[in-house]
């Protein structure tokens, strides 16, 4: 690489460091203090060492450690949304870029599948809450069609709450992923596809032997950005469950847990411990290391 490029990169990297390191260091620093508000009274900051971390990992009366449970919730919600999202996006990207199919009105469909992403996540979540509430249209429809003889409380069942969250994340992000993967596929030399067709490869063989290997860098990028987005999951479950993570806190994500501490008591100590643990935990450090 020419030296000019490297020096300009170095500049932007140091700028990134400048803006991202101080908050991270401060987060760790804050996690060693007792520092919260109670009504109008400010308590602390008092140095307490690792007490916040000890509190974080103290098992509750049933013997489970909350933060591990919420980390599990976060991963479950991410996998449930991201796997169908990436598979669907991959399929759509192949359809849209196929020169054999030549789908008409591509621009229209691309805009339509991207549209849910333009809605604010919390507004989208509020919409789903209204649709699926006990007095909402979905319940009315199910009753009128005779598919259900009683009101279904979608927010009292772990499967449906998580399912709705995954569905929303899927709907909001599959359009975006499709467009990224399409760009990746269009970046592959068209002559390779032609050559494989001439050699008699089937569509499946072309996909697994040509498209997928050459698409890997973009696919990995998509998965990593989706993983980061998934670990930060907050607004959709927060609004859908009114911050409670119902039922029995099974849809409470790590960031919702963080927000529980920050929301009213402004407990920077505990919040710092939670965010430091979450960001240094295995899945997240993996995405740190592999991110470009």
């Amino acid at each position: 690489m020419p030296s000019g490029v490297i020096s300009s990169l170095r500049r932007s990297l140091s700028l990134t460091r400048f803006f991202t390191w101080p908050p991270q260091v401060l987060t760790v620093y804050n996690s060693f203090f007792e520092n919260y508000r109670e009504g109008l009274t400010q308590v602390g900051p008092n140095f307490v060492g690792l007490k916040n971390y000890a509190t974080l990992f103290t098992p509750d009366s049933s013997g489970s450690v909350d933060i591990l449970k919420y980390a599990g919730n976060t991963v479950a919600l991410w996998v449930g949304g991201a796997v169908p999202q990436i598979l669907t996006a991959l399929l759509l990207a192949i359809f849209f870029t196929s020169c054999r199919l030549r789908i008409k009105g591509q621009a229209f469909f691309k805009a339509v599948i991207y549209l849910p992403n333009l809605i604010m996540a919390s507004a989208f979540s509020m919409l789903f809450y209204t649709l699926f509430s006990n007095v909402g249209p979905v319940n009315q429809l199910l009753m009128q069609l005779g598919w259900s003889d009683h009101v279904i409380d979608f927010f009292a069942v772990k499967f449906t709450v998580r399912g709705l969250i995954c569905l929303m994340n899927f709907l909001m992000w599959f359009g975006n992923t499709t467009i990224l993967l399409m760009a990746g596929i269009m970046g592959i030399d068209q002559s390779l596809f032609e050559a494989s067709t001439i050699d008699g490869a089937s569509s499946l063989q072309t996909f697994f032997r040509v498209t997928l290997p050459l698409l890997t860098p973009i696919l990995v990028y998509t998965i990593i950005t989706a993983l980061i987005g998934g670990l930060q999951m907050f607004d959709v479950p927060q609004v859908l469950t009114n911050g409670l993570g119902t039922p029995n806190r099974t849809s409470t994500t790590l960031i919702m847990y963080l927000n529980n501490y920050l929301g009213t008591s402004k407990n920077y100590g505990m919040a710092g411990a939670i965010s430091w643990w979450s960001s240094s935990s295995p899945p997240c450090s993996a995405s740190w290391c592999s991110s470009p």
């Binding site: 109670e38 008591s265 505990m270």
Partner: peptide, 15 residues
């Protein structure tokens, strides 16, 4: 479980 969740809520709001 309900009471345990309530106590968690209390700890989060008022340490």
């Amino acid at each position: 479980e309900a009471m345990s969740n309530f106590y968690k809520y209390v700890n989060e709001k008022y340490p």
